[in-house]
Simulated scan of single mutants.
Amino acid sequence: MGYYIRVEENVRIYVEDVNPGAEKTILFIHGWPANHKLFEYQFNQLPSMGFRCIGIDLRGFGKSDKPYSGYSYDRLADDIYAVVQTLKLRDFTLVGHSVGGAISIRYMARHNSFGVSKLALLGAAAPSFTKRADFPFGHTVEEVNTFISDTYKDRPKMLQGFGDIFFFKYVTAPFSDWFFQLGLEAAGYSTAAVLGSLRDESLFSDLGKIQVPTLILHGVHDQVCPYPLALAMQKGIRNSKLVPINNSGHGLFWEEWEEVNREIVQFIG
């Protein structure tokens, strides 16, 4: 079932809640520029295994409200906290993909892992999406700026180009169009604003604040968040386990959905 939760006076977050009576809960945080539908191939299977699967659309994306501002990692993490508080979630597993992984890490640090018993990071954009003086991995600032500029000039073309590097395996034309449509559901200004956060924010100091068991799943062929990011996360997060997904790019949740689902189920126990 779907419903809205108010996280600020004028901002409501859309929540998709499947199998709410289940004993174990997973809260999914999607990546840029999509929405909760990104996890269709987890929601197809995990509820039948006894899991409550909750997906939210980040502000500015999917069915959520689309304010013009409020796209820092702190604000997005606070939105998650408001959802967790409203739903009274406790002892749940937090799963974040791409920028959703980055926001999940910020949530863990900013809100002291509130309610979270385990964390899973899928192709997470952390500890930094962009290259820095002491971190030679990821994208250049100029590359991200080009994405932002292209978002304002021709967002459909930008999204199509992003889809071309998202997956490692061949995707059918209908699937490619489905993925493309997810990006179009966002507002253009929120799409650009989150790119700005990806460019400017870093999570190096946040990693050490994570105290719960953490599973890192990362596609070896990821062109969006290169595999060295996963190695840096494993080094920075105590009690973390890294599982390389050998036949995937950034879209591991679909390209190797059976393996990803299996790893998540085994991790939660």
Score class of each variant (00 low, 15 high):
92 F>D: 04
81 Y>F: 06
128 S>A: 15
111 H>D: 15
93 T>L: 03
104 S>V: 11
79 D>E: 06
82 A>W: 15
89 L>G: 01
128 S>K: 07
127 P>H: 15
87 L>W: 06
86 T>H: 11
111 H>L: 11
124 A>C: 00
88 K>G: 03
84 V>C: 01
84 V>Q: 02
112 N>W: 12
96 G>P: 11
106 R>Q: 02
114 F>R: 05
122 L>M: 14
95 V>F: 11
90 R>F: 09
88 K>I: 01
115 G>W: 01
98 S>P: 06
123 G>R: 05
99 V>C: 02
106 R>C: 02
83 V>N: 10
128 S>C: 11
106 R>H: 15
127 P>V: 14
86 T>M: 02
95 V>W: 13
129 F>S: 10
114 F>E: 05
83 V>W: 03
92 F>L: 05
107 Y>I: 01
88 K>E: 07
107 Y>C: 01
81 Y>L: 02
127 P>Q: 15
95 V>Y: 08
97 H>G: 02
118 K>H: 15
117 S>K: 06
119 L>A: 09
85 Q>K: 09
122 L>D: 09
84 V>N: 00
112 N>Y: 12
103 I>R: 02
93 T>A: 05
123 G>Q: 13
94 L>P: 03
99 V>R: 04
112 N>M: 14
107 Y>E: 04
82 A>M: 12
89 L>Y: 04
82 A>C: 07
104 S>A: 15
125 A>V: 13
123 G>V: 08
90 R>K: 14
108 M>C: 03
130 T>M: 14
118 K>E: 11
89 L>S: 13
95 V>G: 01
102 A>P: 00
86 T>Y: 00
80 I>R: 04
99 V>A: 06
90 R>C: 11
105 I>C: 10
102 A>M: 10
91 D>M: 04
112 N>H: 13
100 G>I: 03
92 F>N: 00
102 A>N: 04
79 D>V: 03
98 S>H: 12
82 A>K: 11
117 S>H: 11
95 V>A: 09
108 M>D: 08
111 H>Y: 15
102 A>Q: 08
117 S>R: 10
99 V>W: 04
102 A>D: 02
88 K>P: 00
107 Y>D: 11
106 R>I: 10
118 K>S: 14
83 V>K: 07
114 F>S: 02
98 S>N: 14
110 R>D: 07
